[in-house]
Design a protein around this nucleic acid. Structure first.
Length: 269
DNA sequence: CCCTTAATAT
DNA sequence: AATATTAAGG
């Protein structure tokens, strides 16, 4: 079923935002919780853009990218949106901001209710799919599990000998009320006011430490990783590992990497 | 149907 | 390596 369509490269690459240098400080660029996806994609997928009406959800029809023969209907009776045919959405890039939002949502509802759908809704990032979240959640859980294991591994031959991390700051796993759910779920940006979870290891020495973009370290000192809230970054530790960077411009030799979707919430942080 | 997990693909 | 997708089981 997976047929791939090759050869849709886009000459444009926004790979170089220099927001690190000069953020438009005036006010937020976006009102709140508005996902940024390339317009092309938004249209192509008929993703409900809160800003512009999805034109009846059907298809505005520009199909720049897909020259598809717009067959009347293919969904045999299922009159749904079908622009998404043959199109692959770019891989989602979990930026620290996005991840933060994810973690906040998880913590907010408590582990028990933290299922993909709910998380997705709470995050209120449009363009985010349940699969996106599910996949991330799966990984996130593995991460948490490892964290726990380190805490209590009395005699496991295979216990990971991590030099650091002698504790298990995993807060989400245990506490948090059995939130039966007063969580308001609406549709649009649903970023509840974040529960001042003062600190939470959104990402530790193993999670999102990769494509971390250097946050606007204007005056915030500390190499705080946006994704981990204000985790107790060891004063001298390796926390610095995040300065990575832009894989955007490196890593791949020839030139054409896959398109990536970096939708991100207006980082309200 | 949705969720979870593991395995696998890209 | 990070995500996506799928398969299988609940």
């Amino acid at each position: 079923m997976r047929e791939e369509v090759e050869g849709d490269e886009e000459p444009k690459c926004f790979a170089c935002w220099d927001w690190e240098e000069q953020l438009p400080s005036p006010h937020e660029l976006m009102p709140l919780s508005q996902a940024l996806i390339t317009p092309d994609l938004a249209l192509a997928f008929g993703i409900p853009s809160s800003s512009s009406a999805p034109t009846t959800g059907a298809d505005p029809a520009p199909d720049d990218l897909l020259r598809g023969p717009h067959s009347s209907d293919l969904n045999g009776g299922r009159g749904e949106e079908e622009p998404a045919r043959t199109l692959k959405r770019p891989r989602l890039v979990w930026t620290p901001q996005l991840h933060k939002r994810f973690v906040d949502a998880v913590v907010h509802v408590g582990i028990k209710n933290a299922v993909p759908k709910t998380i997705m809704q709470l995050m209120g990032v449009d363009g985010l799919t349940r699969e996106n979240v599910a996949s991330h959640l799966q990984k996130y859980r593995l991460y948490l599990k490892r964290m726990q294991m380190q805490g209590l591994s009395p005699s496991s031959p295979s216990s990971v000998p991590q030099p650091f991390l002698g504790r298990m700051p995993v807060a989400a796993l245990q506490h948090h009320q059995q939130n039966t759910a007063p969580v308001q779920l609406q549709q649009q940006h649903q970023y509840y006011h974040q529960t001042h979870l003062g600190h939470f290891p959104g990402c530790g020495p193993g999670f999102l430490t990769r494509n971390m973009q250097p946050p606007p370290v204007t005056h915030r000192t500390t190499g705080l990783v946006p994704g981990m809230g204000s985790a107790p970054v060891p004063p001298h530790s390796t926390a610095a590992a995040y300065v990575n960077t832009s894989e955007w411009s490196r890593r791949g030799e020839g030139g054409a990497r896959r398109k990536e979707l970096t939708l991100f919430p207006t980082g309200e942080d």
